[in-house]
Simulated scan of single mutants.
Amino acid sequence: MTGAIDESSETGSTGVTRATGAAGVTGETEVTGGIGGTGLTGATGATGGSGPTGVTCATGPTGPVDPAAPTGSTTLVGGSVIYVSNGTTQNVASNSPVTFSSNTLQGVTFNGTTTLAIMTAGFYYFDWQISLENGQTAPNTFGIVVNGTL
């Protein structure tokens, strides 16, 4: 068992501090190692998305006229090709040509029935009209065949 502590006792004096010992010898510095080789190239990344479409620029000026160039044709081709019924009905089967009986076209040859040959190259506008008897409906679609192509 521990006895009671005497609180009237004084603390003893601190002992003498001694000198710090000498520092130890510094160790040798080692040689620095060489630089390592370059690493492998990484994989190519995915291609980025397309950028926005650029602005459309204005049309450039018209170039000069070549004075040595020939003048184009100014011939107008006009007229009509018709079927004169004289009271006779023309029945046209599917995928069959319409028979015409009259031609007033200029610059176009006509075989007298179904074929027109345009003799001058150029741009042409074709318009046609079909008249039906009262109460009749058109069972076919009509078109123009150019060099065998509808």
Score class of each variant (00 low, 15 high):
112 G>T: 01
113 T>D: 05
21 G>S: 04
1 M>T: 12
42 G>N: 04
64 P>H: 07
96 S>Y: 06
62 T>W: 06
92 V>L: 01
130 I>E: 06
31 V>L: 12
76 L>I: 15
114 T>Q: 07
33 G>A: 06
104 T>F: 03
133 E>I: 14
133 E>V: 13
106 Q>F: 05
61 P>H: 01
76 L>P: 14
116 L>V: 07
33 G>P: 02
142 F>S: 01
28 E>D: 10
78 G>Y: 14
94 S>D: 00
132 L>S: 04
15 G>K: 04
105 L>Q: 01
54 G>A: 02
143 G>Q: 08
76 L>H: 14
17 T>D: 07
127 D>F: 03
119 M>R: 13
33 G>Q: 00
130 I>Y: 08
27 G>L: 04
60 G>D: 00
88 T>Y: 07
36 G>W: 12
62 T>Y: 11
149 T>C: 01
101 S>W: 03
115 T>A: 05
102 S>E: 00
95 N>V: 09
67 P>C: 06
104 T>H: 00
107 G>Y: 04
45 G>H: 11
83 Y>I: 10
32 T>L: 07
117 A>H: 05
12 G>N: 04
81 V>N: 01
86 N>H: 11
62 T>K: 13
69 A>F: 00
123 F>E: 10
99 T>Q: 05
73 S>R: 11
44 T>G: 12
34 G>W: 12
139 P>T: 10
63 G>S: 07
102 S>I: 03
95 N>Q: 09
48 G>C: 03
61 P>I: 11
127 D>Q: 07
81 V>E: 02
100 F>H: 00
100 F>L: 11
105 L>E: 00
87 G>S: 06
36 G>Q: 10
70 P>V: 12
54 G>N: 11
60 G>M: 05
37 G>K: 14
146 V>E: 09
110 F>K: 03
148 G>I: 02
49 G>L: 15
40 L>R: 15
84 V>G: 11
2 T>D: 14
59 T>P: 02
147 N>G: 06
133 E>N: 14
149 T>E: 03
